[in-house]
Amino acid sequence: MKKTFFFDHMNLTQTQLKKRIKYWLIFLITGLVLSGITAFPIESELAIAMNNINSFSPKVQHWLTTIYTAVKNTNSQYPYLSYGTDWLAFAHIVIAIAFIGPLRDPVRNIWVLQFGMIACVLIFPLAFVAGPIRHIPLFWQLVDCSFGVIGIIPLYVAYWYSRKLEQLESA
């Protein structure tokens, strides 16, 4: 029977485990950096979406139009409010940097992986509590929650491999 890439650890060496951990963490770090970088030009990105508005469902069209109008008006009248979004972008990049520790030494820095998994789980209560308070539509709350689902996958796999690596190193 063929073993899966994710959890085939029975015959893996320490070097192979470390390579797999690095693969998953590089995937995670790349995603965090990209999501951070793309938070800076929100108005420009929304303008592109508005140029292609007909490719979205009516509900998404309405949401994008509302958000674009709010961002555009806010940026023209109160540009300093976008500074908060800049800090959000910066935070994504800083969080990505935190995963360099497990990238270098996954066993010693396994707590960073645990921290990341906890953060992914906490996305759900934030989205479902703050979302309705801020009048965020349910479909967008679910989009936000998808980041927790997508993020926890590489973190859990890297964590799992790190535990196996720890067992090999202590044997």
Rank of each mutant, 00 (worst) to 15 (best):
K3R: 04
F6G: 08
H9E: 07
M10R: 12
M10P: 01
M10H: 07
N11E: 13
T13G: 02
T13E: 05
T13N: 03
T13I: 02
Q14K: 09
W24G: 01
L25R: 05
L25K: 10
I26H: 10
I29E: 00
T30Q: 00
T30I: 07
G31V: 10
G31T: 10
G31D: 06
L32S: 03
L32A: 01
L34T: 01
T38G: 01
T38Y: 04
F40W: 02
P41N: 00
A47G: 06
A47F: 10
F56A: 13
S57M: 08
V60K: 14
V60D: 15
Q61T: 08
W63L: 11
L64E: 09
L64D: 08
L64H: 11
I67T: 14
T69S: 06
V71A: 04
N73I: 06
N75T: 13
Q77C: 05
Y80G: 13
Y83W: 12
Y83Q: 09
G84N: 06
G84T: 12
T85V: 08
D86T: 09
L88P: 05
A89W: 06
F90H: 12
F90L: 13
F90G: 06
V94T: 13
I95Y: 08
I95T: 08
I97G: 04
I97C: 03
A98V: 12
F99Q: 05
G101P: 09
L103R: 12
R104A: 14
R104W: 14
P106Y: 09
V107R: 02
R108T: 10
R108M: 08
N109M: 06
I110V: 09
W111K: 13
V112S: 03
I118Y: 03
A119S: 12
A119P: 09
A119I: 10
V121P: 02
V121R: 05
L126F: 11
F128M: 07
G131W: 13
P132E: 00
P132I: 00
R134V: 02
R134C: 04
H135G: 02
I136D: 13
I136N: 11
P137I: 08
L138C: 05
Q141H: 08
L142N: 09
V143D: 12
V143R: 15
V143G: 13
G148N: 11
V149S: 14
V149M: 15
P154M: 02
P154D: 02
V157C: 03
Y159D: 00
Y159R: 07
Y161D: 14
Q167D: 02
Q167T: 08
E169W: 02
E169G: 08
S170Y: 01
A171M: 05
